[in-house]
Structures are given as structure tokens and as C-alpha cells.
Simulated scan of single mutants.
Amino acid sequence: MSIFGNNIFGNKAAGSIPAVGNADRPEAEKQKSDAEWRQELTPEEYHVLREAGTERPFTGEYWDTHTAGVYQCRACGAELFTSNEKFDSHCGWPSFWAPLAEGTVRYIHDRTLGMERVEVRCANCDSHLGHVFDGEGYGTPTDQRYCINSVSLRLVPREVEEDSATAS
């Protein structure tokens, strides 16, 4: 599957995947200090979002949620995924077959723990979200699985979205 004109899984020789969407990040999000992040986030949120940690499978708030809505970055509120692209992968973390729109996430080659993976980060605040895997055989339009930590996300149910839209 091609994302943004390049196959994100075929660029391993390049060393890293170009960041997409960082140019428009608010300056405040780019400049936030470690102390500010620690003050704003819970210890678990900080570990996952800022230190690229991982929550245990089958423990997160959204791994088995089927509520319609938009998933935002828990650190900055940027809209990242929707329930329309969420699917049951039975892996223990929320899984999506695509992000909300081009430029909402960025990709980094992750070679930690002796594995070749593609890390997914929020393009707005550079928080760690999870990883994306390709070619696992899921019956989705992209054959990709964005395996995202629940603690990285905040679900805004569709009813709340519609209520706030009519209130404006």
C-alpha cells in the first residue's frame, strides 16, 4: 500500500521515513518542555506518549470499543483516526486501517528490540502513538494495521461532535 506517494515499508534503505505534517505544528506544541509534558500528562500517558512506551495488551480503554466517533491525540487534541477505520484485529490494542487524513500522523523507522517496525507519531505534537504493520492479511482496504495505544487517544463520540457543531 502506498501512503503519501511512497511505500512506507519499502524505504528501509533510506534510514528514516520523511516526517509528514510537522511544518504546521503549533509552535507551543513544538517547544513544550519535558517538565510541562510531565505536568500535563499522567505517568502512564507520559511514558507512552513522550517515552515511546507501550501499554499492556487488552488493558487499554479502547481496544474493544465500538463507539462511533473521532479519536484525538491525548496530548494535544489533534484528530487522528475515526471509528470508520477501526477494526477488530484481536491484538489487544485499538487497530485502524488508515489515519483520518494525510498529514495527521508521521512515520519513523523503529529498530528497537531487534525488530524492524514503523512507528506512528502525532504530526502535531510528535507524541508516540504506536506502530503500523503491513501485509498481515486483514480484510481491510489498505492491508495495514495501525496498532495504537489506547492511552495515546481520546475518543470523542459522534453524538458529542454533532451537539457541539449545532451549538456553534
Rank of each mutant, 00 (worst) to 15 (best):
E40P: 02
K12P: 00
R145Q: 03
V105D: 01
A101N: 01
C147K: 08
G114Q: 11
W37T: 06
D143F: 07
E162N: 09
A13W: 06
L155A: 10
T67C: 07
R121T: 13
P57M: 10
T65P: 02
Y146P: 00
R106M: 04
F96L: 04
S164Q: 09
N6Q: 12
R111D: 15
G21H: 04
E116P: 01
G135S: 04
R50D: 04
A75N: 13
V20Q: 10
K12H: 14
A123Y: 06
A14H: 15
Y46N: 08
L155R: 11
V118F: 03
W93Q: 07
P18N: 08
L49K: 09
E119M: 11
D64M: 05
S89A: 15
E102W: 00
Y62C: 03
T42E: 06
W97N: 00
L41M: 11
A19K: 12
S95T: 10
C147D: 03
E55A: 07
G5P: 04
V70H: 09
P18D: 12
F4T: 03
R56L: 12
R56N: 10
G5F: 03
G10C: 09
V105K: 01
D88N: 15
T82R: 10
K86N: 09
E51I: 02
Q39S: 15
E116W: 03
D126G: 10
D110I: 09
E27H: 05
D126H: 15
N22F: 04
T82K: 11
G130I: 10
T67A: 10
V70D: 13
T82N: 14
E27L: 13
D24S: 09
A14T: 14
M1F: 05
P18E: 14
E61G: 00
I148L: 02
R145K: 07
M115H: 06
F58R: 05
L153N: 07
G77Y: 13
A19P: 03
S152W: 11
R117V: 06
C125H: 12
P43Q: 08
R25G: 04
V151A: 04
D88K: 14
N124S: 15
N22E: 07
D134N: 05
F9V: 00
N6I: 14
Q144Y: 02
N7V: 02
P18H: 06
S95W: 01
E116V: 07
W37H: 14
P94A: 10
Y71R: 02
D88T: 11
R38E: 11
G69H: 13
L153P: 05
G15E: 14
E29S: 09
P99H: 00
A13E: 15
Q144D: 00
K30D: 02
C91Y: 04
F133W: 06
F87E: 04
F9A: 00
P94N: 08
G135D: 05
R56M: 07
P157R: 07
T142S: 03
V132T: 08
L41T: 06
A52P: 03
T104Y: 00
P26A: 04
Y62I: 03
G21I: 04
K30W: 00
G114F: 13
N22I: 01
P26D: 05
